[in-house]
Nucleic acid binder design. Sequence first.
DNA 1: TGACCTCGTTTGTAGCCCTA
DNA 2: TAGGGCTACAAACGAGGTCA
Length: 281
Amino acid sequence: MPENTTFGNLQSYRNYTQPTVKRLFGDTSFRKKRKSKHQENVHKLLEALALHGSMTTWEIAQLHYSDIPAIRTREKELRRLLVGRKDRGKKSLGVLDVGLVVSEKIKIKQNISNYYRLSLHGILYCLDVLGFRKKDVDAMAHNYEKTLPMVFGKWGYLKSILDNDVYRIQILAEGLFLDNIHITKISKIPIFEIITYLNVKYQNYYESISEKDLADQISYWFYTTLLIHSTMNRKMEKTELEKWKKIFANDKKLKRWFFGFVKETSKFYSDRFDYLKILEP
DNA sequence: TGACCTCGTTTGTAGCCCTA
DNA sequence: TAGGGCTACAAACGAGGTCA
């Protein structure tokens, strides 16, 4: 488990983390438009963690340098990007401080090393901003399948059914449909209701949420928003829905997990309306 | 052969100075 | 003023040398 790192639910990411990190580290990849050298360095660090998974600062430095003095210099730069810096009484935030990266102490032989990896907020930021190609998203999904088990843990399976539509997660990572679900077309599929309940279910975890709960929230959001596509294109509706149904038909565990949430959502609304019925004079 | 010492490596913390 | 370059320092550990 990550230590000394707290991050909030999806609303917290949308309302606080996302605008904060975009202000600090940029809202487009440094390859498209570089805001500063600092932005480039942060993006390269996040990219390394996305494409290679959990690593020590020494290992990250070794990705680009082979001689010890260069590795040593690079490693110190990386640590400063991670933990921020205090200078003349002022503290500059590092990517650990804003919750994009988490650290874990792992004992290798006799040595206890700090291993760094992306947090779920970090994964969303990378998908949103770094302009990953499909193969980069695939690599990140492979490295973070334990962090986001219901989506990245089933990446190959999802690709076999959805094909390129799995990469819609990059558009979702912008925060789409999270707080502007009203823009979706009202259809017979209760997408609006499900996403509204998703916000209600995790509303008490704005300040702090466990990684597992956040992974669930993101995953419910992902599978629900897959339905939006089918409501937007009448011609494609049937095909899109068939694909969506197939995902759950072939994976019993996934079906139990997602439709358990759907039942919970349904109960939430029916309980509330039952209460209203009691009040009827 | 075992105890002890030295040195290098890896990881980590902190601060000063310079520059864009 | 934020960020980059550089340095000093420390802890833990392994490898190798020295000595009784």
